[in-house]
């Protein structure tokens, strides 16, 4: 067992963990922050994406012990302080960027990371950035629309509509 201390959603946390404890296990099972999902557990799907020191990472492919001293942000910290949905989340609702919702935490975390480094992405830049996020419901169009809207841009006409 190893002791690990980090900041999660602004709160300091410290626990004893096994070496093999994944960051996503730590978040879900030790901290009970179950908004972060495990879709594939093989680094493919992106449902487990959280921010570590401001960067999007797949929390199923990082050990909790590697987050020692890090600032971790999960989907639970995305809403506004009054509990209402933030701009990205609201756009996902407004543009039907989800159906079953399983991939949505990872989508929102990826979209947020993208808009931080590129506030006005093109449609292609959004599609490229979401390469590591898999959605099996929407066919992606509405997710792209939601992210375009969240960045304050006009919606482009899309192919296959």
């Amino acid at each position: 067992m190893a002791k690990v201390a980090m900041t999660v959603n602004g709160k300091s946390v410290s626990r004893e963990v096994e070496g093999r404890t994944l960051l996503v296990q730590f978040l879900r099972e030790d901290l009970r922050l179950t908004g972060t999902h495990v879709g594939c557990d093989t680094s493919q799907c992106g449902a487990c994406i959280v921010h570590v020191n401001g960067e999007a990472v797949k929390s199923c492919t990082m050990f909790a012990a590697e987050a020692e001293g890090a600032e971790v942000t999960t989907i639970e910290a995305m809403a506004n302080e009054d509990g209402s949905l933030n701009t990205v989340q609201q756009a996902f609702q407004d543009y039907h960027g989800l159906q079953c919702g399983f991939c949505t935490p990872g989508m929102v975390m990826s979209a947020t990371a993208l808009l931080k480094e590129n506030p006005k992405p093109s449609e292609q830049e959004i599609r490229d950035y979401l390469e590591g996020n898999i959605c099996r419901c929407t066919g992606y169009h509405n997710i792209i629309k939601a992210i375009m809207a969240a960045s304050g841009q006009e919606m482009p006409a899309m192919a296959a509509e």
């Binding site: 992106g46 990472v57 797949k58 492919t61 993208l114 390469e131 590591g132 996020n133």
Partner: peptide
């Protein structure tokens, strides 16, 4: 290489 989250690790 990979995708953005993979490239961050």
């Amino acid at each position: 290489i990979g995708d953005p989250a993979v490239r961050n690790r």
